[in-house]
Computed example of a mutant assay.
Amino acid sequence: MLTKKQLDLLEFIHKRVQRDGVPPSFDEMKDALDLRSKSGIHRLITALEERGFIRRLAHRARAIEIVKLPESMGGAPTSGFQPRVIDGPHPSPAQPANISPDEVQLFARELPVMGKIAAGVPIEAISHVDHHVAVPGQMLSSGGSHYALEVKGDSMIEAGINDGDVVIIRESSTADNGDIVVALVEDQEATLKRFHHNGTSIALEAANPAYETRVFPEDKVKVQGKLVGLIRTY
């Protein structure tokens, strides 16, 4: 069931798409619903997407697509649970042009999945793009490049990171104590661990008591990036 504001916004978007072939801008939606800020529009759009009425796309400006309409607007009746499916992989899309900072949050971005990362004993260094994954724009921190890695192992389970999860990493060569980082050990092995720098040593700490903290001379460990998000598939 939709609230009146959600229904009003869906109807406005539908009419504009029917008339112009493209959805309205944030400003147009805000004015049409007589809202004070575009953040209210963002919440309404998120609610419509969660209920399966719209889909947000990454390859065009104002990337909103009507998926279905409620019966009150002439849509087909629905019953029961309908899962949302994200197909992949897709080629990396171009950055949409002429959008406001508020609208940027609506867009998913395609990130390269650079193979697997060990959350356990370190595995071979990451050196290739395996495939791509779509990541919500609001998950990515501002500034810097990002990439994704598939987790292999259970050493970070107490930090909420499970085997098979996809972690989102912001490229960085530095980290603060307590950060979860991708660390390259002796230029050969990559691992996902909590970072601690103490004097001339670096400790890579697991989040599972079954794994010991590993300590290396600081010149044997290179930080490759910091964890900023996680995607889990059920």
Rank of each mutant, 00 (worst) to 15 (best):
S25P: 06
S25L: 03
S25D: 06
S25N: 03
F26R: 04
D27L: 15
D27N: 13
D27R: 14
M29L: 05
D31G: 11
D31T: 12
A32I: 00
A32D: 00
A32E: 04
A32K: 08
L33G: 00
L35Y: 03
L35R: 01
R36Y: 09
S37Q: 11
S37I: 09
S37N: 10
S37V: 04
K38V: 08
I41W: 00
H42Q: 13
H42N: 11
R43G: 01
L44W: 01
I45K: 04
I45N: 00
I45C: 08
T46S: 14
L48A: 03
R51N: 11
R51W: 00
R51T: 07
R51K: 15
G52E: 02
F53T: 04
F53I: 10
I54N: 07
I54E: 01
I54A: 03
I54Y: 04
R55D: 06
R55H: 11
R56E: 02
L57Y: 10
L57T: 13
A58L: 06
H59A: 12
H59E: 10
R60T: 08
A61I: 08
A61P: 10
R62D: 05
R62L: 04
A63I: 02
I64R: 05
E65F: 01
E65S: 09
I66L: 06
I66F: 02
V67H: 03
K68C: 14
L69P: 03
E71Y: 02
S72D: 07
G75M: 03
A76N: 13
P77K: 05
T78K: 13
T78S: 13
S79E: 07
S79L: 13
S79C: 07
S79P: 01
S79F: 12
F81L: 11
F81S: 07
P83V: 06
P83K: 12
P83R: 09
V85R: 15
V85E: 10
V85P: 02
I86E: 14
D87R: 15
D87I: 10
H90Y: 14
H90G: 02
P91A: 14
S92C: 13
P93T: 06
P93V: 03
P93Q: 03
A94V: 13
Q95R: 15
P96R: 08
P96V: 09
N98F: 12
N98H: 10
I99Y: 04
D102Y: 07
D102H: 13
E103W: 02
E103Q: 06
V104D: 13
V104Q: 15
Q105K: 15
